[in-house]
Simulated scan of single mutants.
Amino acid sequence: MRKIIKAVKILVLILSLSSCKNCTSVFYGVNERQYLNINLEESKFKSTFLSHYIDEVYSKKNIIPDSIIHLFPSGKYSDSINKVIYFKTFPQEAYYVGFNATPPWLIYIFNKRISGGVIDSKEQLSKEEILRIKKRFKTEIIDKATIYVQEHRIPDSLVYTNY
């Protein structure tokens, strides 16, 4: 009988700790970081192509200042999945974009006009700002990538999801 009572107590303790948001992070190191999680563009481009385009074409013309790059989690311009896209024209801002899915998705944004730090929650952005961000991604990245593909006659099979 004592073994059963002891087992029930342990079970209650486990259930209590696992349902406590702050308790689990102490024991399991749960990532409680928020993400914007905004899909940027429903395009036909493969995310792998867009990621390559950002690395090889766009970022060579748009150098990210050190004062901005350190604000993002990787502390560098990019890793194999995520990229920082810097826009030097008004409004000056940087997007931390995930390319591990199609369409790419916005993880964080930095814009001094909106916030002094990295924006990681949709609640920090108005609907108008979200639409502006999506439009900017389309005009500055998608539209220019489309022109790049046409000018360089890159095969559709390398660029598009359904060719």
Rank of each mutant, 00 (worst) to 15 (best):
K3T: 07
I5H: 14
A7L: 15
K9P: 02
I10T: 11
L11S: 09
V12D: 04
I14S: 06
I14Q: 14
L15R: 05
L15C: 09
S16W: 03
S16R: 05
L17K: 03
C20G: 03
C20F: 09
K21T: 05
N22D: 12
T24P: 00
V26E: 04
V26D: 01
F27T: 13
V30G: 08
N31I: 00
L36A: 00
N37L: 09
I38Y: 02
N39W: 10
E42M: 08
S43F: 02
H52G: 03
I54E: 14
V57S: 09
V57D: 09
V57C: 11
P65C: 13
D66F: 05
D66P: 07
S67N: 05
S67P: 02
H70W: 06
L71V: 15
P73V: 06
S74M: 05
G75Q: 05
G75W: 01
S78V: 12
I81Y: 07
I85M: 02
Y86S: 02
F87R: 02
K88I: 01
F90C: 07
P91I: 13
P91L: 08
V97A: 05
F99N: 01
A101T: 13
W105R: 07
W105H: 11
L106E: 00
Y108P: 12
F110L: 03
N111I: 09
I114W: 09
I114H: 10
I114Y: 08
G116W: 03
D120I: 10
D120N: 06
D120G: 13
K122H: 06
K127V: 15
K127C: 10
E128C: 02
I130H: 11
I130G: 05
R132S: 12
I133T: 04
K134S: 12
K134T: 13
K135A: 10
K135S: 15
F137E: 12
T139P: 05
E140G: 02
I141G: 00
I142S: 02
D143L: 05
K144Q: 14
Y148L: 02
Q150I: 14
R153D: 12
R153N: 03
P155N: 06
S157R: 11
L158P: 00
V159G: 07
T161A: 08
N162K: 14
